[in-house]
């Protein structure tokens, strides 16, 4: 690039009037060895820019453990809720079942007692009926006597 051109570009560079491509030309020019004395003071600026471009972000990036897409926390809370519901279910279910069993035992006991009582009654009735058989004998005997006469 001609010296005149460079000077013009520099002028516009400091007025912020150059394009990105023109600035590239300037950087190129100043990265060369043979720069005339009157332009030498500018060299460090373009040297600095060229050096600054080379800096890299070197720290490894840790984004944390890979999560499942969306709703993963919802899923987690749902399973906790389900476990709680299940535990309550088991707890109350057990009490309910126990209550039922006690009730059933009581009912069984009452049934047995009633049955015993009815059996007793039935036995006594039997005895009563046996005695009634004698009465029948008496009625028959009386009928015979009456019929004969």
């Amino acid at each position: 690039m001609e010296l005149d051109n460079v000077k013009k570009l520099l002028e516009r560079y400091f007025e912020a009037d150059t394009t990105v491509a023109e600035e590239e030309l300037l950087r190129d020019y100043f990265s060369k060895e043979n720069i005339p004395d009157d332009l030498k003071p500018y060299a460090p600026l373009f040297g600095f820019i060229a050096k600054a471009k080379k800096e890299r972000f070197a720290k490894p990036l840790d984004l944390g453990p890979e999560k499942k897409l969306g709703g993963s926390s919802l899923y987690k809370w749902l399973s906790i809720a389900a476990a709680v519901v299940l535990m309550f279910g088991v707890y109350f279910g057990k009490t309910y079942y126990d209550e039922k069993e006690v009730e059933q035992q009581q009912a069984q006991y009452a049934y047995n007692e009633t049955k015993k009582a009815l059996d007793l009654l039935a036995q006594n009735m039997e005895r009563g009926t046996e005695k009634m058989a004698y009465l029948n004998e008496f009625v028959e005997a009386k009928d015979k006597i009456y019929n004969k006469n």
């Binding site: 400091f14 912020a16 030498k40 003071p41 500018y42 600026l45």
Partner: peptide, 20 residues
Amino acid sequence: VRVALSRARKTVREKLMQKH
């Protein structure tokens, strides 16, 4: 942006010239 850029470049130039 242009004004700030021009000012920044000119400040750098001025300081470089002083140093030189």
